[in-house]
Structure formats: C-alpha cells, structure tokens
Design a protein around this nucleic acid. Sequence first.
DNA 1: AATGAATGAGGGTTCATTCAT
DNA 2: TATGAATGAACCCTCATTCAT
Lengths: 224, 224, 224, 224
Amino acid sequence: MAETKTAQRRKAAQGIVKRRERRDTRPQEIVAAAFEEFAQHGYAGTRLEDVAARARVSKGLPYLYFKTKVELFKAVVKSVITPAFDAIRGQIEITTLPTEEFIKGPFLAFIQELVKSRRAVIARLLIGEGHKHPELTQFYFEHIVSRGLQTLQSLIDRGVARGEFRKTPLRDFPQLIIAPVLVSILWRGLFEPYRHLDTDRLLETHVNLLLDAIRAPGAKEETQ
Amino acid sequence: MAETKTAQRRKAAQGIVKRRERRDTRPQEIVAAAFEEFAQHGYAGTRLEDVAARARVSKGLPYLYFKTKVELFKAVVKSVITPAFDAIRGQIEITTLPTEEFIKGPFLAFIQELVKSRRAVIARLLIGEGHKHPELTQFYFEHIVSRGLQTLQSLIDRGVARGEFRKTPLRDFPQLIIAPVLVSILWRGLFEPYRHLDTDRLLETHVNLLLDAIRAPGAKEETQ
Amino acid sequence: MAETKTAQRRKAAQGIVKRRERRDTRPQEIVAAAFEEFAQHGYAGTRLEDVAARARVSKGLPYLYFKTKVELFKAVVKSVITPAFDAIRGQIEITTLPTEEFIKGPFLAFIQELVKSRRAVIARLLIGEGHKHPELTQFYFEHIVSRGLQTLQSLIDRGVARGEFRKTPLRDFPQLIIAPVLVSILWRGLFEPYRHLDTDRLLETHVNLLLDAIRAPGAKEETQ
Amino acid sequence: MAETKTAQRRKAAQGIVKRRERRDTRPQEIVAAAFEEFAQHGYAGTRLEDVAARARVSKGLPYLYFKTKVELFKAVVKSVITPAFDAIRGQIEITTLPTEEFIKGPFLAFIQELVKSRRAVIARLLIGEGHKHPELTQFYFEHIVSRGLQTLQSLIDRGVARGEFRKTPLRDFPQLIIAPVLVSILWRGLFEPYRHLDTDRLLETHVNLLLDAIRAPGAKEETQ
DNA sequence: AATGAATGAGGGTTCATTCAT
DNA sequence: TATGAATGAACCCTCATTCAT
C-alpha cells in the first residue's frame, strides 16, 4: 500500500506519467489485473481489493469504471476473448487456400497457439462460473460460440462445395472440430502437473484424423 | 418445511430400527445432498447450511463426518464418479465383440447416457474449482482420468492388434475420443437454454467419423 | 470483545444463565440494544456492530433474528411503541368516567408520561427516516396513528353524545389533540438544552384550553 | 445528462458575462440543489455527487464554498428558513388589525401556506438529523424557534392587553399555537399517501378552537 | 450422535473528501 | 476558479466453523 503511493509519486515526480494519460489507460490496467486474479483464483475466489492492489490502484477505483464485480468480469471476458476470435474468423473468410491446407496450416496453428495462450484460462472461468451469470453466458454464447460455430460450419460447407470433402454430418456438429481444443485447454489447466500432454501433436492428430474421415475419395490423401 | 418435520416424525414413529439404519446412511445422505447443491450452485456458491437442510439434518452434523467444506466436496466427487466409470471399464475388458461394434454399441450408449446423466455436472465443478484443490484434482486424475485413458488406449490397441484399425497416433491421444463427451456435457450445462444440441447424434457422428478415420483398409465400411 | 466472552463464561460457570434460557431472550436483548443505538444515533448513524456490542453479542448474531438492518428497526418500532398505545386505547374504551374527567385525568397523565418516556424518541426516528422506508411508515400509520386517531375520535363522539361537548370540527381533526404531544417530544429531544420546557404544564394547559373550547354550554366550567 | 451539457454550452456561448454572473451565484445554486436533495433523501441519504450534478457543477466544487457536508447542510437550513419567518414576524409587529382578525386572516393564511410549501420539509430534516449537529440545532433554535415563540407571545399579550383575550397560560406556551402546524407538515411528509389530510381546514379549526378558548367574555363570538 | 445458537473474519460496495491538473 | 480522477475508511451482510447442550 505504502509502496503504491510511493511508486506513483516517484513516477509523477519524474514526469513519466501524466495524470491525464493514466486516466485513459486505467480501465485497461484494471481489466488486465483482474484477468490475472480471476485466472488464478476463479471468480468467487478473487477479491476486488487484490485486483486493485495488482493494478496499483486504490480499493475503490475499480468501481469508478465497473459498477460491480460481475461487470468487471464481463469486461475481462470481452477484452480478452473477442480480439483473438475475430482474427481467425477473418482469416477463414478471406483465405484462398484449399480448405484442407487452410485447416492443416493457419487453423491448426491458431488452435495450437490458443491452447497455450494465457487467455485460454478464461474458458475455465466461464465453465466454472457461467451458470451463475446467465447474461455473461449469453454474451459469450452469442459473441464467441455461436459465431465461431457458424464460421466452422461455413468452412466445412465450402470444402464440400469445392468437392474437397465428403458430405458428412460433421457440418451439423462443428463442436466436434473444437472439442479437442477445449480438452487441451482444460488439461493444461488441471492435469499438466501430473502428466504432460503434447497439445501440439494432439491437435495435429485430431486435424489429420478428421480430414481423413471427411476427405472426398478423389482428393489427395495425406495422413500425417 | 412443514413436510420435512412431518416426514421426520413419521419415520421416528416407525421406531428406532429406522433411526439406526438412518444413522448408518447419514454420510451418504449428506453427500447426496451436497452433490445436488454443488451441482446447482457451484462450490463457492453452496452453503453448508443448505446442504444440511436438504439432507434433513442439523447444521452441525456434516462436520461430524467431514472436517471441512473441502472434504465434503471431495467425498462428493469420489462417491459420484467412481462407480460409473468402473462399470464401463469392466465391460471394455471382458467384451467379446469386434472393437468397432463395441464402440458403436455399448460404448456409444455409455457416453450418450453419461452426457445426459445428473452426475455429469461434476465435471463442471472440477473444472471450475479443481485448480484450487490440488489433492482433489490429483485424486480425480489418478482414479478417473488416467485409468480411463489407459482403458481407451488398450481398446484402440486391441483393434489394431486384431487388424480392425490402422495404426494411428490416436492411441497416444485417447483424449480425442473423450473430447466430444466433455463438450456435450458443458454445452448442456451452459448453452442448452440458448440453443439445443442433439448430443446423441453428435456423439454418434463423432464415433462414426473416428472409425472412418482409423478403420483398416480391409475392414468393412459402415459410415452412418 | 474479550470482555464479552469473559463475561459470558463467568456467567455460564456460575450457572446463572443457561444457554437455552438466553436463546429465548436474545432477540429482545438485541432489540433493546438497537433501540438505544437508534435513539442516540438515528437509523443511518447506527452501526449494527455497535448494536451487537451493546447487546454483548457477536457481530453476526443480530442477523440470525433480523434479516436486515431495516427489519431490526421495524422490530424496535413495534416492540417499543405498540404496548404503550394498546394500554391507553384499552382504558379509553372501558372507562366509565365522564369524558372531561377522563381527559383531565388518565389521558393527561398518559401523554405527560409518554412525552417524558424513553420510547418517545422513536417518534424522532420515524420522522427522520420514515420516508425512506415506506413499509415501515405504513406499518406505523396503520398500527399506531390510524387506530390512535380513531380512538380519539370516538372519545370526542362519546362526549358529544353524552351532551358534555359541543359539536365541533375537532372530531374530524383528532390530530389537534395530539399535536402538543408531538411538539413536547421534539422539544425535549432537540431544544431542551437551550431552554427548558415544562411539558407537564404545557399539556395540562392544552387539555384545559381544548376543553374550554368544546365544552357544552350547560356543562360545568373548570378552567385550570 | 446530454441536456445538461447542452445547456451549459448554450450558456457559455452567451459570453463571459453570464459566466461571471454565474460564478457569483454559484454558492446559492449549490445550496438550492442541496436543499432539493436533502429534502428528498434526508441528510445521510444525500450524496454530494448528486448535489453537484443537480447544480450542474463538478464534484469538487461544493468543497470550495462549504468545507464539509455538514456545513452545506447548515447553509441550506439558514438560507431556506430565515426569510419566510422574517416576513410574518414583520407583519405581526406592524399590523393594526384586531388580534382575532389578524389570527384568522393573515396568520392563518401564512401557516396554511407554510405547511404546503416546499421549505416545510426542512423541519423533517432538522428533526431527523438535528440532534447530531448541536450547533445547527442551536442556530435554528435561536433564529427561528426562540424569536418565533417570542413573537407569538407578544401577539397573545397584545390581545390580552386590548381586552380581546382572557388571561390564560397560553402565553407561557406559544408552542401550542404552532403544534398543529408541525403536525400538518409531518403528516404531509409521511402519511399523505395513506390518508389525505385537509390541512387548511385543520389549521382553521385549530385557530377557531383556540380563539374560542381564550376569547374574552365580552368579545364577539365567531366559531367557524 | 446430534442440535442449532453463536462466533467473527472477510468481502463487496459506497461515498465524503482530497488533489493534481 | 474549476474539474473529476483517485483515495480509503467504513459499513452491511454472509457463512464456514465451533461448541454448549
């Protein structure tokens, strides 16, 4: 606490950080701090006081930007998740690669990175706390899940339309494409200390098997 | 509430034998009640008082059998999960069916039922709270996950040995077999209100695609 | 705090107070303590922790009996006010005295005592906080004010019916009978330090003037 | 909110003269805004931020003129009450009407209006918070109460001196003249939603009864 | 073995007040 | 003179846990 003030004064004295400048970045700083705390302790286990301390901010400040703990949590989810998914969704829509190549290339790389990224822990949070905050779940469903699945569906459809893939019920269950991603994330969060899982290879295997299963008879075979 | 008391009195009136019997099953009753509460409200959201009330027991009694809330939580996990998995594991070991038939038959039926069962919610609990209780996670890993994966591995190996399946990296990643089960469980717990998911068909599709991907060239083809 | 526990243990050791016995009186003790605190600091200015401390009880106990601060406040109002008013209301209904004599006698004595009593401060509380707690105001209105006014009205009506009083609009405004009581209470609570007010004589004067104003021409004159 | 800003800009656009003028009236504007807030939410229930917002002023500005919330509260009381009472006091001193006529006329009109006026709510505030702010109570006592009662006393004395009134103890308790005013104010603030009170007639009745009680035998009788 | 009254640490939230700009 | 971001003490309320009975 004393540190906080001391640090701020030092900075102020050095003229490094103007008050005005800080004001604009404060919400982000708080969100970032909150993300770390939520990730480590879960929603219920996170104390706003600790969030504030981590953001080097007084206990009351978070309430200036976020009305309640739940609002802060939502802000964390939004800020952490949305950008990543927007990126890959964009790629899927504009890519000119053959579908199989896209899946084995950029898509596989994306989910491999996603699984290892810091922001994957948000999934655990959602799963653990979601049912208590329906609005949050709904937001997450509409902005991430629903749109993500739709994108995957259109990816499959495109492959089928191009004669690359057989017509399979997979298009009705794009969740099957994502399932190993979730498992990878959760494994890393829970069981990694007990047994290492090579998620890169797991996801690669998944992608290859899936493609083997749906590849149209005429298309080139390329099992890993 | 009035019912509660009435019911208790009725039991009491039936004599001390019933009371004796009840005394012996108290821990189980408390665990069952705790399971329901945990399932509905999560770990942090569950009040021991409510557990006691649901078990028709005084507020202090749970502490006679479970030293803390965490201990009770562990007991719930152990009691709810273990039996179910022992069953399928046994089946896998003794079945005489061709592997593909076993997977499409009893195994598919098992995971279809599991996903819809009440006890699936425990997965959500573990995911949400597990990282805070390492011993619990470890217990869960050793008793359920590790042994489950081993069993699946041997199932794949058997299929390969019999010439039913190709040799694929799937045996190194049996998590891929289970992934859609987890997704189904979580979907039902979180997103079902927003969009229905036919988990029976999803799992059937998963199983068929997987078999398509690993079936040995000579083996009979049987896409769904 | 240490005192609390020490004191309780001493008592317990002496066998003076059995736990069971205390249980039944605890709510009343808490209400009594709350009354003192509310009276001294007003509603908003009262901290439940202080109430608990005054009742020699832990911080959390009041919540066992009263769901919120407001509920506790209501309990205070009910417990302090109702009995007193029930008493005088009963007297009015059963008295056989001539109305004027009753008013100059028991009624005057009642309001003289009321004004000086500890529980009069509740009026200040109601006035200060009432508008923020409509249910409380409504409760107070229905149980104390409305019934009190009705009783006064019937007292006037009886005097008129018996030929003791003239027919005046006073019966439509029984508030006029009570007004000096309120003023006395508030004076004592606010201005007594700056100027003493002899509320006994004030109320006596009020009663006499009022009777002078409404006494039927034939009835005996008896100005103070 | 948007309106607020718009309005401010409009004013600003009208030039610095307006701004200058506004600057000089700032304290009054803040006091006026505070009056409204205090009247609606009570002392404790009023947030300085809301006061500032209502005055279209920044959160910190009130502290430029009023050191603390209490100081602001005092300023509100002083500014709102004093003027009204000075007016009637002046009238009483210079009137040439017979005392009874003055009471039934201008005086009755004054208290009838007072009871309905916006500033009457200040009485509720004083009653609710006064005991916590002795200096405020003292100020109020000296400037309003004491002088008001003195004025009423001299009004009675004048009536007696002129032979219009009997000599009664009323002169020692001018509070009796005011009591129904207070009751009317409080009723309007607290109970009006539950039962309407015709305060005009109540006060008229009060005045008439009082005059009936003190009128000298020879003076004209004039009951309402 | 069983009860439930009682404890008290702890957390979310509010808001009067300060102060850098 | 004026702003509004920032502070931090304070308070209501919850609930895991204890313990006298």
